[in-house]
Design a binder for these strands. Structure first.
Lengths: 156, 156
DNA sequence: TATTGGCTTCAAGTTAACTTGAGGAATTAC
DNA sequence: GTAATTCCTCAAGTTAACTTGAAGCCAATA
């Protein structure tokens, strides 16, 4: 009575899909993206290791935290290739993601504070509007001051 | 000497683009999306009102805050159609967005806290993993407990 | 052995928020 | 009046993260 999860050594994509909740197409896509590297059996079917379930779970959790596949791939690149990743490995990656999350929260709070400062203003100019002017956008197209959200010049 | 910003009553798309920093194609796209409704002159060219600069600035700011076009459209639907929006209008919308931002920050902080709780765990199961299990995902495909990030069953 | 049913590849579709390009008309400048 | 801009529409391309479908092997089962 062969275990139907193990066919010709390794887990089938269907079983991994069952266990992770991902669709087979998503798992294949993650392979294209370099997040997993399953073996193949003689017939050309993918065969996964048990640790791939862990990897894929990490992918799902990371996505839930708002990370892109590129970021996740980079984080997973830190994992040992031939050793099963252990708690310490995951902890390292998690701490790294935690720091990124902290930065994001800080940025959101800064935006939030600026919005608070701007509520009720309504006639902001580019020169003074903190919301409009966060330097990370660098929208300066054309030179000279452009007044926005206001009617300070060239009234119609 | 006609003001080159006003051609046949109203602002040209080029001028509005200059003033907002948006590209003409983006402004046309926002029209398709229902964020602005310019007039047309006899030749079929778009003619914008001055208040459209304000609307478009609001769009840009809102996008910087992370809102989608659909959300922005909904917010702008609150604005009076034929009256130039005033400070009170903007303040109302801004407060609404502020509340949404607050929620987002809270959610991020909750995720952050869960990540902290999970660092070092490494062998989580679906039953106990707070990160994997946020109900907002509702990933349950197929019934029965699925263990993830762990090797608790069917060891290879 | 035959038949399901799972698995394979590859191409194309999906959403968001736009951009790019083609082909042509309107407007402005000289 | 003519050239140079600017604008028009419409179709298709772009990125991310996948899904869907077609056409056809591979594998488990009766």
């Amino acid at each position: 009575m062969p275990d139907n999860t193990l066919r010709n050594r390794g887990l089938t994509i269907g079983y991994v899909a069952e266990r992770t909740g991902l669709s087979p197409s998503a798992i294949r896509f993650y392979e294209e993206e370099g997040l997993v590297r399953p073996d193949r059996n003689d017939g050309g079917h993918r065969r996964y290791a048990r640790s791939d379930i862990r990897r894929l779970s990490f992918v799902m959790i990371s996505q839930g935290l708002g990370f892109t596949i590129a970021e996740i791939r980079e984080a997973l690149a830190d994992l040992p290739e031939h050793r099963t990743p252990d708690r310490r490995d995951w902890a390292r990656i998690s701490r790294r993601f935690g720091r990124v999350l902290d930065e994001r929260i800080a940025r959101m709070q800064a935006l939030r504070a600026r919005l608070d400062g701007c509520i009720g203003c309504g006639c902001l100019s580019l020169k003074t509007c903190a919301l409009y002017n966060p330097k990370d956008k660098a929208r300066s197209r054309g030179q000279g001051p452009r007044y926005v959200m206001g009617d300070r010049s060239d009234e119609i």
